[in-house]
C-alpha cells in the first residue's frame, strides 16, 4: 500500500499534463513544484541559533518547513534540535549549521513524533539521532503513515525521505555535551513523548511543540490535561527566552513562580501562558458545543475569542481539534438511549 501510493505520486509528478487535466487545483500543484529549501539561522543567545518555520499549515508552497529548529554550538559539534519534515530540509539544515557554527552536526534531538519535526531524521546517520523512548515507540506505530501523508501533500519535496527511527535513549536530567550543560525534560501531552531542552548557560528553553506562540496549537495526539501539566512544569523551569515549536521566539513575560532562578527568570513565559489559555478555552468550548447540540461542522465554526485574534491558523486548528476530540466527547456527554 505504502509503496504503491508513493509510486503513483512519482508517476503523477512525471506527468504534469495528466495531473492538470483533473481541475484547477491540480494545475496549481503542477506549477508550484519544489524549488528547494532555503532555511535561515538567526542568533538568539550565545552559541544558539533558531531556524524559523513558516507559521502555516503543511503545504506545497512551504515544503512542510513549518516547525522551528535550533542549533546549539558545542566543542564537540553542533546539536540540532528537530531535523524538520524531509531529507532535503535536513541536508539544508546541516549545511546551514556548519556555516554558522563552524562545526558539523554531531547530535540530533527529535522532540516528538510529528512529521514536520521528525521525518528529517532521514538526513542523518541513525547513531546521531536521539529521542525519548515514547517518541521512538510512536514513530514505529505511526511513522510510515505520516510519511504517506507527507508524500501526498508534498510530493517532490519529500524525495529520498524514508522513515529513520531515532534511538529512544533520551533520559530526563542534566547532560554535558561538548562543554555545554543542558537539561533534558521528558514531558507529554502534545504527544505521548515531548522533549524540551534547557541550555543552562544562556537560559534558553527550547520547548518543542509543547509551546506554540501566536500560532494555534495542533492536537492530533494531544491529551489536554497532561499537556497543561507539562506547561506548568515548563513555566517553573528558570529561563530567559523560549523557542516554541511553532511561532516566534518568546522573550516576554516574567516567571512569577517565586523560585530561586539564579537570575534567569527574565522572560519567555508569554507563549506558555498563551498555549495554556488556548487549550483551556478549546477544551471548554468543545464540551459546550456538544452540550448545545452542535454537530462537528458547526462546532468548527464557533466564535474564537478576541484575545486569540493575533493567533495564526486559529480556525484551521480549531477545526482539526474538533476532528480529534468531538466523537469521544459525544460518546462521553450524550446520554444512552
Amino acid at each position: 500500500m505504502t509503496i504503491s501510493r508513493r509510486a503513483l505520486l512519482a508517476a503523477a509528478a512525471s506527468l504534469p499534463v495528466a495531473v492538470a487535466g483533473h481541475g484547477l487545483a491540480a494545475t496549481a500543484l503542477a506549477q508550484q513544484f519544489a524549488t528547494g529549501y532555503h532555511p535561515r539561522a538567526e542568533s538568539i543567545a550565545d552559541g544558539i541559533w533558531m531556524v524559523r518555520g513558516a507559521d502555516e499549515a503543511i503545504a506545497m508552497t512551504n515544503g512542510g518547513a513549518i516547525a522551528n529548529s535550533a542549533f546549539i554550538a558545542t566543542d564537540e559539534g553542533t546539536i540540532l534540535f528537530d531535523p524538520g519534515p524531509s531529507r532535503e530540509y535536513a541536508l539544508a539544515l546541516t549545511a546551514l549549521a556548519e556555516e554558522v557554527t563552524g562545526k558539523p552536526v554531531t547530535r540530533v534531538y527529535v522532540s516528538h513524533l510529528h512529521p514536520d519535526h521528525a521525518l528529517g531524521a532521514a538526513g542523518f546517520a541513525p547513531e546521531l539521532l536521539h529521542a525519548l523512548p515514547e517518541t521512538r515507540r510512536e514513530l514505529v506505530d505511526e511513522g510510515e503513515g505520516f510519511a504517506d501523508g507527507m508524500y501526498r501533500i508534498l510530493a517532490d519535496w519529500m524525495k529520498g525521505t524514508a522513515l529513520v527511527l531515532p534511538n529512544g535513549d533520551v533520559k530526563p536530567g542534566d547532560v554535558t555535551y561538548g562543554g555545554r550543560k543542558l537539561r533534558l525534560l521528558a514531558l507529554q501531552g502534545h504527544s505521548g513523548g515531548d522533549l524540551a531542552l534547557l541550555d543552562h548557560a544562556t537560559g534558553t528553553l527550547i520547548a518543542g511543540d509543547l509551546v506554540f506562540n501566536n500560532r494555534a496549537p495542533a492536537t492530533p495526539h494531544a491529551d489536554i490535561a497532561a499537556w497543561q501539566k507539562s506547561l506548568t512544569e515548563l513555566a517553573a523551569v528558570p529561563h530567559n527566552i523560549l523557542l516554541p515549536g511553532h511561532g516566534p521566539l518568546d522573550t516576554g513575560g516574567l516567571n512569577t513562580g517565586g523560585l530561586d532562578t539564579g537570575g534567569l527568570d527574565t522572560g519567555g513565559q508569554d507563549a506558555i501562558a498563551q498555549t495554556a489559555d488556548w487549550l483551556g478555552w478549546l477544551d471548554g468550548a468543545l464540551h459546550d458545543a456538544v452540550a448545545q447540540g452542535l454537530d462537528m461542522a458547526e462546532a468548527g465554526n464557533i466564535a474564537i475569542p478576541g484575545r486569540f485574534a493575533g493567533v495564526k491558523l486559529a480556525r484551521y486548528e480549531l477545526q482539526r481539534s474538533v476532528s480529534h476530540f468531538y466523537p469521544a466527547l459525544e460518546a462521553e456527554l450524550l446520554p444512552r438511549l
Binding site: 499549515a57 492530533p220 462537528m296 458547526e298 465554526n301 484551521y316 477545526q319 474538533v322 476532528s323 480529534h324
Partner: peptide, 9 residues
C-alpha cells in the same frame, strides 16, 4: 454545504 476547511480525518 457547511464543511471544515480541511479533511483532517
Amino acid at each position: 454545504v457547511i464543511v471544515p476547511q480541511l479533511a483532517e480525518n
